[in-house]
């Protein structure tokens, strides 16, 4: 982990309040693994403001870039909207335990909303057949599907309002695929990131089926390095720190309220 002075390479709006921020971060880019996150000091907030954690959408050692995909949800992300190419941004990273990039059988990636961000980086690194299941409230919350397509990832979509893909929860197409794979006797593993309800649903499936499940938990953080104990997730081993013990946890270790 380093605290690097990065510069903004590009900062693009993707519609519906989502943005893609590409940082020139040669010091950490090559070290960054799928599922890890970066802790960003938003330069347009007051100097004493806490950093904001973002999971990594993509990182390239060759280009020396780290990319985050974020949604404007509060004061920090609203302030981040105004940074421009060339601006300096102080970033700690790479942080946390990420996803494994070895997978036995088919990798089933399950993303909710902007939870697809770390799954994109994961899909780039996985060498096995990969299928993405995306759940979103509505069609405009479906993000970067073209990027997944470019990686050759088959994508199944569900929206709450039926404006894209099938209407309902993403667990419906996921369960059909799980049933098909089990019927064919094929191995698979589950990887997920999104709201807690989805994480819980995917965790329960992994545990009850006895397959590996890798769950990326999203929590508000303070230090990002394990020093403050603010971002807690209940696990079989007690209260774990999402920033350093996670954010990716094996499904069998998690305890849901």
């Amino acid at each position: 982990m380093i605290d690097e002075t990065t510069t903004v390479a590009s900062h693009c709006e993707m519609g519906a309040g989502y943005r893609l921020l590409v940082l020139n971060a040669p010091g950490m880019a090559a070290e960054t693994r799928p599922g890890q996150f970066v802790h960003v000091k938003v330069p347009t907030l007051e100097a004493s403001a806490l950093r904001r954690p973002f999971s990594v959408f993509d990182a390239s050692g060759q280009d020396g870039t780290v990319t985050v995909l974020y949604k404007t949800v509060g004061r920090g992300t609203a302030a981040l909207n105004t940074v421009k190419p060339g601006d300096a941004v102080q970033v700690e990273g790479p942080l946390g335990r990420g996803f494994p990039t070895e997978c036995n059988g088919t990798a089933l990636l399950v993303g909710g909303g902007y939870g697809v961000a770390p799954l994109h980086f994961l899909a780039r690194r996985l060498r096995t057949k990969t299928t993405l299941f995306v759940g979103a409230r509505t069609a405009s919350d479906l993000l970067a599907l073209d990027r997944f397509a470019a990686l050759g990832v088959e994508t199944k979509v569900a929206t709450n309002d039926g404006s894209a893909g099938e209407k309902g929860f993403v667990t419906a197409p996921l369960d059909r695929e799980i049933a098909r794979l089990r019927g064919a006797g094929e191995a698979f593993e589950l990887f997920t990131c999104g709201p807690d309800g989805l994480l819980k649903a995917v965790s329960e499936r992994a545990v009850s089926l006895g397959v590996p499940g890798w769950i990326s938990v999203d929590r508000h953080m303070v230090c990002g390095v394990g020093a403050c104990f603010a971002c807690i997730q209940r696990t079989v081993g007690g209260n774990a720190r999402c920033c350093i013990d996670g954010p990716v946890f094996p499904a069998k270790e998690l305890i849901w309220q």
Binding site: S48, C228, A230, I232, G238
Partner: peptide, 19 residues
């Protein structure tokens, strides 16, 4: 085990925590 979540909130000029 410490307290339940949420354990912190950012405020103008600082941070309120109950770890």
């Amino acid at each position: 085990p410490g307290n339940q979540m949420p354990r912190h909130v950012e405020v103008p000029g600082g941070l309120v925590n109950a770890i």
